[in-house]
Structure formats: C-alpha cells, structure tokens
C-alpha cells in the first residue's frame, strides 16, 4: 500500500482560499528571508574562513543606514501581514445576518449539535453548500475548541459563556471536526465529521429527521414549564420585562448602562438575574443556575429570539406551534476578501 502523504489541507469553505492566500504570502516572505540569511551565513563562512591562525581582520565600523534599513523594511513587511490578517479575522468574527443558526454544546468528550429546526446530532454536523452557518457554542465542563481544518475555522468553546463563529461551506464532502483545546483524558477522541451536502441532499436529510420540534418551540415549552410567563408577560401584571421584540435591542439598565439583548445577555439573565438589572424592575427573579441544562438555555434563547421578528432571525414567532423550517432564501453573501 502506498503511504498516504497529504501536504496541504482541503479547501472547503469560502474563507479557506483567503486564509491560504495569506499563508502563501507569509510563506514566500519567510522563505526569502530564511534563504537570504542562510546563503549569507554559508557564503561568509566559506569565503572568509580562517586561513591562518594569526590573521586578524579589520574591525566593523557599523552602519546606521544598514541598521535603519533592516529595522524599517521588516517593520513595513510585518505591517502588511498585520493588516491583511486583521481584515480576515474581522470577517471571521462577523457572521452575516442571514446565517442559519446551529447550537453546539461541548462536553468531555463529545460534541452535541442542534439545528434550528430541532435536529440533533452528536459528533456529526450536516450542512448545505453555499449557506452561511453561524455557530453559537458553549461548554458544560471545561474549555474545548471547535476546529474544522478544511474550513480554516476554529473557536474556543467556553463554559459559562457563548462564543460564535461562522462559515460558508463550498465543497461537498466529509471533513474532520477536531477539539483543539486540550480538555482531558479523551481529548483526542473528541472528534467528529462535518458532512457538506448539496442543498437538495441537505433538504432530504433535514426532512428525513424524526420529526423533532424546533429549538424555539422546545424553548417555548420550557418557558411555560418554568413559569417564566407568569412574570414576563405583555400586560400591566408583568413583574418582569416583556420579552417580545426584545432580542437584539438595547436595554437600559438600573446602573445607567445600556447593553444589547444578545444570546450572552439572555443566558446571563437566566442564570444570574441580578447581574444586569433592567431599569424599573425589582431584583425578584430567582436564579435558574443548575435547574436548566445548557441545551435548555439554548432553547430558551432561541425562543426569545423568535419573539423578535428581526431580519435574519429566521424563525418567525409561532406561538405554541412548530416554527416553519428555516430555509435560507436570501442571496448568497459575497465571499469575504
């Protein structure tokens, strides 16, 4: 059997060619300077080798011009790395508004993934080609990191908070998912596969699911179950803020600050209700720390998100019922530079 010797990873996301282009630029500059130094050292070592034990060469006088040259030129070159790298990083961290949501919970030592429509997967992720996918991730225990080499994408998955990353797959196929942050005994077994599918095949896969309910709908049930609706309601009896239309809006706090009601804020408000008190309300809400699992919180977040019919938040409010399957109808995003 001929040994398998790959030298370069597959490019399967819109970001991959951009990262690779920058990588090749870095590689070219590095190869140039490594060779320059190596050739000079070898050339000097041979050309000026000691020919007699007593020879004494003339001294160096130094040269301000040279010193400035090899300070300023490398500085300018590294600034090109900086600007290009920062631009890519910025794009990697700004998911498009129309991205499909996927929620990921990491735990020692598996990935639990859930689609917006409710399909659950473990250590596997099915995504369609061409659709931007936004990952919202948290961990039940230690820090993990969700890494798909073929997408040049990686983000730490941290207990106690949400992190986000996004990608747009471009090539159908199966690619590795690795946990890249050391997370204990079976770290190297915390791996999986991302299946990138043609949109039609993906639709077939989605509908072939076991009729699971959408995240928002599951969240709605939890909302009733935990009696959240007795306080968070849309009338004069409300003892807590009304949550309809809240998601993504600024919230005025008691201490005068303003925060945006995003996933992180909602999660924190469920687990530590008095951490950021909304102006005009009493700190009467009990903590739900330990009462709702990370997955349950994600469902609640999805539900609250669904109460705000903002562009991009795909699930429209559908009280009590199943949210319609989320299909991405918006035009494909421009590939990031």
């Amino acid at each position: 059997m001929r040994p398998d010797l790959p030298l370069f990873p597959s490019q399967a996301s819109a970001m991959a060619p951009h990262v690779d282009a920058l990588y090749f630029y870095l590689l070219a500059v590095s190869a140039f300077f490594s060779l320059l130094i190596a050739i000079l050292v070898i050339f000097f070592a041979i050309k000026f080798r000691r020919r007699s034990e007593d020879e004494v060469p003339v001294g160096n006088e130094g040269s301000l011009k040279l010193e400035l040259a090899w300070t300023v030129i490398p500085l300018l070159i590294t600034m090109t790395f900086f600007v290009w790298g920062a631009k890519l990083y910025f794009r990697m961290n700004r998911p498009p508004n129309d991205a499909t949501q996927i929620f990921i919970v990491g735990k020692q030592w598996m990935w639990k993934l859930q689609h917006q429509d409710g399909q659950r997967e473990i250590n596997e992720l099915h995504v369609p080609v061409g659709t931007p996918v936004r990952l919202t991730m948290t961990s039940e225990d230690v820090i993990h990191s969700f890494f798909i080499p073929a997408f040049r994408m990686k983000m730490d998955v941290i207990p106690g908070r949400y992190t986000q990353q996004w990608f747009r797959a471009t090539t159908p196929g199966d690619f590795h998912i690795f946990c890249s942050q050391y997370c204990g005994t079976k770290h190297s077994a915390m791996i999986g596969t991302v299946h990138v599918m043609e949109p039609t095949a993906f639709q077939a896969w989605l509908s072939g699911g076991s009729g699971s309910e959408s995240l928002a709908s599951a969240g709605s049930k939890l909302f009733q179950q935990h009696a959240c609706n007795t306080c968070h309601r849309n009338d004069s009896q409300a003892r807590g803020p009304n949550l309809e239309g809240l998601f993504g809006k600024p919230v005025q706090l008691q201490n005068g600050q303003t925060v945006t009601a995003d996933e992180q804020y909602i999660r924190e408000s469920i687990l530590m209700p008095s951490a950021k008190m909304v102006a005009g309300y009493q700190p009467i809400m009990p903590t739900f720390q330990g009462l709702i699992s990370e997955e349950g919180i994600l469902q609640l977040v999805a539900y609250i998100r669904s109460l705000s019919p903002s562009p991009g938040s795909a699930a429209a409010p559908s009280p009590g019922g199943m949210a319609p399957p989320v299909k991405n109808s918006s035009p494909e995003r421009e590939a990031p530079k």
């Binding site: 990262v19 920058l22 990588y23 790298g85 920062a86 890494f147 040049r152 994408m153 990686k154």
Partner: peptide, 11 residues
C-alpha cells in the same frame, strides 16, 4: 501573530 492565519494553526 497574523490573526487570520492563527485561527487555523492555533493549537
């Protein structure tokens, strides 16, 4: 040190 590349090669 290059942000866009480090995301891939980190760890």
């Amino acid at each position: 040190a290059t942000l866009g590349v480090d995301v891939h090669v980190h760890d």
